[in-house]
Design a protein around this nucleic acid. Sequence first.
DNA 1: GCCGTAAATTGATAATGATAAATTGGTATC
DNA 2: GATACCAATTTATCATTATCAATTTACGGC
Lengths: 250, 250
Amino acid sequence: MTDAPRAQKRSRPVQVADQIKRWVVERDLRKGDKLPNEAAMIAQFGVSKGTVREAMRILEAQGLIVTKTGPGGGSSVGEVSKDRAMSLLGNYFYFKDLSLSDIYQIRKVLEPELVATLAGKLDDETLDELREMAHRHPEPARTPEEEKQQHITSLAFHARIADAADNELLDFVISFMARILADLTVYRRLYAAPNRALWERGRRHQIDLVEALARGDGQSARDIMRSHMQEAETMMNAQEMKITREFMAE
Amino acid sequence: MTDAPRAQKRSRPVQVADQIKRWVVERDLRKGDKLPNEAAMIAQFGVSKGTVREAMRILEAQGLIVTKTGPGGGSSVGEVSKDRAMSLLGNYFYFKDLSLSDIYQIRKVLEPELVATLAGKLDDETLDELREMAHRHPEPARTPEEEKQQHITSLAFHARIADAADNELLDFVISFMARILADLTVYRRLYAAPNRALWERGRRHQIDLVEALARGDGQSARDIMRSHMQEAETMMNAQEMKITREFMAE
DNA sequence: GCCGTAAATTGATAATGATAAATTGGTATC
DNA sequence: GATACCAATTTATCATTATCAATTTACGGC
């Protein structure tokens, strides 16, 4: 609970939303647990239906509850999804001016660190998925459309590794950066001029990385990822991209 | 814009909120720019007052607008604050089980990287603030209350450094971790058993770090921060803490 | 200029009906 | 008699309308 004891008067719907939050925290409710229905809340808090509904929309917007109609319906606690959290955080950065080098400054240290700790700990299913992604595009792109697709796959590769981390915060940060870069790829025409040598090295990196992870060689995995990040940054910087206002999400 | 083209029917208030968002993005409105008033939106979207109000609560909950009453009042675009963004992200991690080692895995690589790039680039005012914080507690704590206070100061020291970064994402991630640790300190009794040698080294680290930053010695700054993180982690781990469900914020 | 009042705007309630979905119950079929 | 299906009922939320209260700026009289 971080509700600042702010003196300023808050609106009734916000007050009600906060009370419901406290109610949930106190009872340690989890995903799926049901909240009282509208009528009960109207009685409980002594406010009108409209106020209760506004309170519910507030909680819903934050991803904390889900609401269904019909018998057995009503509102229930809903775990905030990773996607929702990324969208909400995206709203914050919508007003900032992130640059590619800002993102790569972080990627360059976090991703090598991640793969080093992950070496030897991935299950076969994950490794196979990664192998598939690493091998999916056996040839350099010939069109901007293909280039975009390859880029998306590459970012999904990184996000997939992050998902395997046993560290939700590290997972989130890396996935969030991948999403920013992916959105950038989708909404702007972000693709590199053809460069077969560079492309070949990037592909090699991914393939080698998976095998280093598979055989539990953390040091190699770290080194490969470092090189990979370095080259990716160089390639991206060649695009003179300016990142900002890319998403204002759901 | 990341609104997934979800097939499922969304409620009117959500639809209206999305339309307003699009409206804002299309016109590239910034903080302070005004939105149409309730009456205009009712006419514009052909919905009732209640629906418009629910839409506004949604946007308000995400920190995207602020609303005032009275003539010349109404809603206007409001930059999402760092604090609000941290609260919303906190809701996501409320349902996760972060451990101290999760956080320190990231701190250990990000913070040394940060100070290395910051060496020689801080203005005198910032350096003075950091010096003041580093020197604020000249003696080890004698009570749990003092211990808590010193810990808060130390985390503020790290957050202050992050704020100086010319990288909003790096700033946010580090500040967010500092906040989690600070909340942990406040809401649980998190304090170390007295250990003068450890305490002395920690204080020394901070003082030396500021001076390394002042004279532009990035390599020293990095090394000092690395040692500092290492010792901090050791100290925290001595507390067997389990982080979770610490905040469910505004 | 100062001060009080009017006007503009959101805030909140109440009453009513529409819509969605799970449950119930009936009915036909095997 | 058991089962599958379909329709009616019931229980919720969803959405609109009308009305009044609260708040705060803006204006006008002095």
